[in-house]
Each structure stands twice: as C-alpha cells, then as structure tokens.
Design a protein around this nucleic acid. Structure first.
Lengths: 333, 333
DNA sequence: TTTAGCACCCATTACCTTTAAGTGCTAACA
DNA sequence: TGTTAGCACTTAAAGGTAATGGGTGCTAAA
C-alpha cells in the first residue's frame, strides 16, 4: 500500500459514496495525472489486496467490506459540519429542561434528520441508581399504586388490586419496613435483598405475607425488567438510500427494524469511542454499517447507534457523533 | 340492484380480495349457471352504477370505492374466526394484570398478528380522571420529583431542579395547599384552577411564588400535553400486501406511518360501533381502508384503528373487532 | 333475456439488437 | 521498470418488435 494506492482507494470510496455507481478507471485519470491504464493496474492490485470488488468481469470497481474498513481506519478524516447541521444540533443543546429519555429521543431525531440514516438507542438504568424510596398510594379500598423512586430521579409506578383479605394498612406497613432497610441499595440488587432480608422479617409480622410480598416483588421486578429502553428513529430514512430500490430488500430491512429482537442484536457498546461495524461485523444485517458510541446520562447508560448503508458518509456521521458525544459527556457529569 | 347483481358484486369483491387480480366474466359462469356474456352484461350494469371499475378497456373488473362501501354496508357478513385466531385472543383476555397502556399495546399486537394489517391506537386520559394527589419527593438540595396521581391510578412524574433561592419546604407547602384545594378536580381543569384559585393564595404566602408556581404548572401541563398516546404496531405488515410491490408506494406508506402528524389525521372515533372508512374517506391515504372502534378503559379512552388495503378482509377484521370490543367493554366497566 | 361468435384491446412477456461503460492484456515507449 | 496506447472482449441496460392471453363490447340469433 504505497501512497498512491492509499489516495486511489480514498478517492474510489468517497466517489462511490457520492455516486453509488461502480467507479471506472477513466474517471480518475485527471485527478491522478496519468492514463486509465495505469489506474487499471493499480485497481487490479487493490482488488488483489481484497479492498475493491467488481460486480461482474467488465464493471467498474466498488469498495469491499475490507476496503471500507481500511478507509475508515486509515484514510478518512472527520468532516466539518455544515452551518445548518450545527444549527440543528444547537437547538438540541440549548434545550435544558429535557428528561433523560426525552433528551436521548431528541438526540436520535436530530441524528436521523441530519444524517438521513436510522438511529437507535439501547439504554438501561445504571447501577448508580440506588433505591430512594417506595411509596404506596391507595386509590380506593382495593386499588393502590406502588411507586419506586431512585436517587437519580427515575420513578416508576405500577397499579395493583389487593386481595380482599389483606388490609391496605399492612401493605403500607411493609413499605415502611422496606424504606427503612433498603434505601441506598443499588436498584439491581433490590430484588435479591427483598428476598433474603425483607421476606424473613415480614413473614413474622404479617399474616398473608406471600401476597403482599408479591406486590413489592412485582413492583421492583417491573423496574428491572422494563429496564431496557429501545428506541428506533427514522426507520423510513433508510428507504431514501438508493440501495433500497428492490421491494424485497425494503421489506427485509423494515421488518428487521420493526422487530425488537433483531434490533437487540446490535449489542451495547462499552466505551465512549466511536466504533464502526461494517456489513457482516454489524451483527444486524450484512448490507448495513452500524456506528456506535456510548452515553451515560442521569442514571441511564446505553448506546447510540446509527444504521446506514455500507457506503455511509462516514466522515459526516463520525463528526456528528463526536459533537454529540462531547455534549453528552458534559451533561452526564 | 336485483338479487343477482347483489350476489355478483359480493362474489366479485370477495374473489378480488382473495386473488388480487381483476375478475373476468368467465370465472363467474359456473357459479351463476350462465354464460360469460350474461355476466358481462351484468358487470357493465354494475359499472354504470359506479360499483365496479376497469383498469383499462379490456381488463377484468375491480371493485370501486363505492363498490366496497356497498359491500360492507349491504352484503358482508362477519366471519367466524378460526380456532387459532381465537386462541391468540384468549391469551390476551386471560392476562389479567396488564396496565391500561400495556393492554392496549398488546391488543394492537394481536390485531396485527391475526389480521396481517397495521393497527394503531389513539388514546387520551378521560375526564373521569380527577386529581387524587400531588407529591413532592426531594432528591437532594436542589432536585425534586413532582408526582401527579389521579383516582384512576394514572401517575406521572417529572423531575425539577429548583432555583437556589427557594427552599424545598416552600415547594412542599404549596403541594399541601394544592392537595387540600384541588383534589377531585378533573385533570383537564387543573391547570385552570391552578391559575385562578391557587395562584392568588400562594402569591400572598410565598415570596418567590412565580418560580414555584412554574414547577406545578409544568408538572400538570406535562400531564395534559403528554396526554396523547399514539401507538402504531405492525408497520411492516402492510408490506406483505401485494399492492405494495412498488418501491415508491412502499416508501410513501411507511413514511406516513412513521410520521405522527400523518397518523394523527386518523381522527378519533366517537362511539363503540365499528366504522369503516374506505380510501378517500380514510383521511389518511387513498389506497387504504381504516376500520375504527372506540374504547374506554381504566381512565383512558380512545380509538383503535386497523389500516389495511382497500381490499381488506372486511369480514374477518370486523369479527376480530367485535370480539375485542366485547372484551374491552367488560373490562372497562 | 340469454347466448354464441367475432373483432378488438392492451398488459405482459419473451426475444433480439444496440449501446455504453468498462475490463485485461499486449506491445511499445520513456 | 513504470506508463501508455490500442484492441479484443464482456456485460448491464435500454430499446424495439412480435407473440400471447385474458379480457371486453357488440351484434344477431335462439
């Protein structure tokens, strides 16, 4: 890989990203001040290295997966964002009063808007959340709302109807015991401590303790199990990409994006770097690239991912995520 | 419209729904014990009545919008559901412990599953919800969670940071005033009473009352303005319909289904009947039919709508909604 | 009122040809 | 030794033509 091959590959990748057509040797003569034959020789070499591909024997060249990878790792430089893109980001940054989940949602919308790709978030409450308090709010004789609140301000509520042989007072009493003993426990540990620390105590003090225990178990369990916040924004954006001109391809992709199980295959990222997973590396679909980064914000942490075609505008996407990352970091601490 | 024309139209509509191909006269000879020429005469008559259409001069017939309408109003009979469909519904009905929004969501999933069409819900909290209590839960010196709870068990929470010159105690004090005065007020009226009944009082008792007032205003405002619960389930189901074989059509539809503003054009229905809006009547897209019904469940009321192609299996859809309706009614009261 | 017969219509398909874009290879050149 | 011109070759895409098949409306006779 000499200097000229690097330049050539860079040119071919970037040109292909723009034009979506296989690149022929003639198109590059001018830029490289040489004849098409010379370019062809170089291209043949790049193909031998596995960085370029042909669709058929006499077609122009297209970057291979390895070619894209080499490009993002060695050749690409993040791009300056346009004025209008920066403005859109500013509207997000200036909005101070968003809740965590709204901020992330808004984030995704803006990403989708300025990149024209699909964006997703995979979030969950972090272990920084410790139990702050449990409230029982009676609605009437048989209905109550159980409220679980963490010190990071995440609040979940669940409604219950209690069996007729249990008095509301007993439930409230137990909530008080929990408040005394479990406050400060990381939210992920609460279920366990409920079982081993609380259950033995209430089994002595309360008659129908199994039923009452169930209420609290459910309330916490709900907190934990609804822990996964998955959002997918801009599903239809991908359809504007020229690679989705075949109905069958469109259906395949849209169905995948609709299917939470499939989306969950995009695993969480584990650091703040921006990582790029191309095609088969994406773990989601061989025809897309997934770009990921991490966030940690107000007791929730997770991954933001952008899904685009393999010929994604990597330089812009990385630039957007860089800026977003900086913002999330400031906001997170 | 004599008896035979009715039969013929019914046959054509139902056949077209199954086959998705224009129906020619020959296909109906056997069933009607007459020659194709006779059928052709009748078809020409039905076309003159505006109930059938031709794609081009020598093609078979296709039901017109008016034809579908006549069919659903005069000819269609709700179908018996299959065993497996009934079983799927049973899994929904047997699940007792669902919250309102989960129940509706589940409902939509099952509808989409058994009809293979897209289903949506447009819900909002009903005026049956009256304010039950407001809680202020301090998180630390400057952060608090405001909690609004209605007697139907709908609970919303919102986190605030309070300005440094306001003490937490003042906020709590005002929450007590609100609890004394506003409990029992329909949730839609709270903002108004807050302005006219509460504000004058606290303006005397609290120094920085504007800021504190803002907190409660925001908390309630959020309750009201996040009032619209829109869910769309099974967007990709429509893509399995043979009418969506053109990329441009697919994009158009998916983009519409993704766009909340567009979906909102499907207006709320106002009674428990099942109503059918075909094509241009749908207010959403000329190429689809929207079937609507109403629900009222645990303090939330709204509309469930099914979006399918105009050649929807009306008889099955109506049957499903009939059963669902019955269940929602039982559960609602 | 129903039917057979016939002329006619047109979307779809298959097949063929042309065109344009591009390649690899060879041999000559600097 | 790297570069280039020239040439034979490949292929997808576009265009043109013809055949096919499913359908119609109309007329005239039963």
């Amino acid at each position: 890989m000499d200097e000229r091959k690097n330049c050539l590959l860079k040119e071919i990748v970037e040109c292909y990203i723009k034009e979506v057509k296989p690149i022929g040797s003639k198109h590059l003569c001018d830029k490289f001040h040489c004849s098409s034959a010379t370019i062809r020789n170089e291209m043949a070499a790049l193909e031998k290295l596995g960085l370029l591909e042909k669709n058929h024997v006499s077609s122009g060249r297209v970057p291979s997966e390895a070619g894209y990878k080499y490009y993002v790792e060695h050749l690409m430089k993040p791009k300056e964002l346009s004025k209008s893109d920066m403005q859109k980001l500013q509207t997000l940054f200036s909005n101070k009063n968003l809740t965590v989940s709204d901020a992330i949602e808004k984030c995704l919308e803006i990403i989708s808007d300025i990149t024209n790709y699909t964006s997703i978030s995979l979030g969950e409450y972090s272990d920084e959340n410790v139990l702050r308090q449990v409230n029982i709010i009676p609605l009437d004789d048989v209905h109550l709302v159980a409220l679980v609140c963490t010190d990071k301000g995440i609040v979940k509520n669940k409604q219950f109807s209690i069996p007729p042989d249990i008095s509301m007072m007993e439930v409230v009493k137990i909530s008080e015991i929990i408040n005394k003993m479990l406050v400060g426990t990381p939210i992920s540990m609460v279920a366990e401590r409920l079982e081993y620390d609380i259950k033995p105590i209430i089994s002595k003090q309360v008659e129908q303790y199994e039923a009452v225990y169930g209420i609290f178990y459910d309330a916490f369990h709900d907190f934990i199990s609804n822990n996964e916040n998955i959002h997918v924004v801009g599903k239809s954006k991908m359809l504007n990409q020229p690679e989705y001109s075949e109905p069958s391809e469109i259906k395949r992709l849209i169905s995948k994006l609709e299917d939470e199980e499939q989306v969950r295959k995009i695993e969480k990222h584990d650091n703040r770097d921006i990582s790029i997973y191309i095609g088969s590396e994406s773990n989601f679909d061989d025809n897309v690239t997934v770009v990921k980064t991490n966030y940690s914000l107000g007791g929730e942490e997770g991954t933001i991912a952008i899904i685009g075609p393999k010929r994604m505008e990597y330089d812009r996407v990385v630039a957007v995520l860089n800026i977003l990352n900086k913002w999330l970091e400031e906001k997170g601490d």
